[in-house]
Amino acid sequence: MEMKTHSADGVMHLALQGEFTIYDAGIKDELLALCAGPRVEIDLSQVNEIDSVGVQLLLLVLRQAQMQQRSLRLVALHPAVNTMFELYDLHQTFGLDNNGELPS
């Protein structure tokens, strides 16, 4: 998996690309570091495969952000991610509506 970042207006934008599976378990620390800013957006539109390891890592960064009262949002979901969230019923957890869209 690849991670691309750029920041604008104080928002760290993190785009994950490729597969996000158990083979990517090693990115845990890097991912936490990248998501440590006060305002973070994660773009999952290019993540074409995700498994429970990926889901757990996303839950981990989400919980860290919530505990430290930072803002962390998922801004776009690849259909593969959307299906997984549906299966685990996690949309609400990530503050998304049931279509994987940000509630307006």
Partner: peptide, 29 residues
């Protein structure tokens, strides 16, 4: 899901430990 319909599911992940103690390859679900 192929045997029937999952009417409702709650995923429990709160047992996941803090980042330092969490092993990304372990399952906490």
């Amino acid at each position: 899901g192929t045997l029937g319909e999952i009417a409702h599911i709650t995923t429990l992940w709160q047992q996941m430990p803090a980042p330092e103690a969490m092993d990304a390859e372990n399952c906490y679900l």
